[in-house]
Nucleic acid binder design. Structure first.
Lengths: 142, 142
DNA sequence: TGAACTGTATAATTTATAATTACAGTTAGA
DNA sequence: TCTAACTGTAATTATAAATTATACAGTTCA
């Protein structure tokens, strides 16, 4: 898995924690530990989901549009890196006469899909607010 | 995720399906679609788990040592690429004065760990035999 | 002894990921 | 209306990870 998903969560948690409620790409990039251009690119995705708003121009930046308790990690995952839990390169070859070589990738797709959906079932129960609370007020949480 | 895990499953399923019960690294590599040296390397791991045996020298190769129905995909996953479901590079920085930046990676580790364990719970219910049956006799199966 | 294998290390190549650069478009305020 | 401070986006470069390839010592059997 690449780090799009955790970085997206980080951005949303940061905005949820921010007292001013907004931040520009430079501030966010420094907090996450990445480059402002990458933040802006990721923000496109979060904006399309309706989770953040953008203000361009001087004094501009990003701000939350949704309630932290309404943003589920499973949805962030789906928006940022869906399918990332399975390997890109399948084994075997579809045209082989050997049933194992030709059929294994379809079978594995099935198992990866099922397993990934259990992974997402769990993340469906965790919100941006939960993550924030785990950080600023470490008590047992989802 | 890299393709160690699906390749390992492929190797075991192939041996389980093979009528002779054994195959050398060249035959396995061709079936999986990779290099014989990589097969030999992966076999080390499968041998250490007691799932396959090796015969060196002329006429040698690999053969199953365990029942296909007793080899669980979750165990293959653990042996071949445990932890591969989380990104390698954490976001934020531990020393930061910002609680989000310093705390997010610990929080995400927790959620990734929980989610991965759901993923494995599912794979725990699938065996090499199940995979083989799904390929050679496609009926509803785990 | 020699041919057919495995075991293992290391180098080379390819691919994926992230960082960087660049610049057009937007906005607020002097 | 001009300018500085931003975002949006694409293209390029750099870095890291995964995979393939090469090499050769050790094993086994005929």
């Amino acid at each position: 898995m690449n780090s799009e998903f955790p970085a997206a969560v980080h951005l949303l948690v940061y905005l949820a924690h921010s007292t001013s409620g907004s931040a520009n790409s430079e501030e966010l990039a420094e907090n996450v530990g990445t480059h402002p251009a990458r933040v802006r690119k990721m923000m496109r995705c979060l904006r399309e989901q309706g989770w953040v708003g953008t203000r361009e121009g001087i004094g501009g930046g990003y701000f939350l549009r949704a309630e932290p308790a309404a943003i589920r990690l499973a949805d962030i995952y789906r928006a940022s890196c869906c399918g990332g839990l399975r390997p890109k390169k399948p084994t075997g070859s579809p045209g082989s006469t050997c049933p194992v070589s030709s059929g294994i990738s379809g079978a594995m797709d099935h198992y990866f899909g099922e397993a990934e959906s259990r992974y997402l079932d769990y993340l469906d129960g965790v919100t941006v607010q939960d993550v924030l609370h785990r950080i600023v007020d470490p008590r047992p949480l989802p």
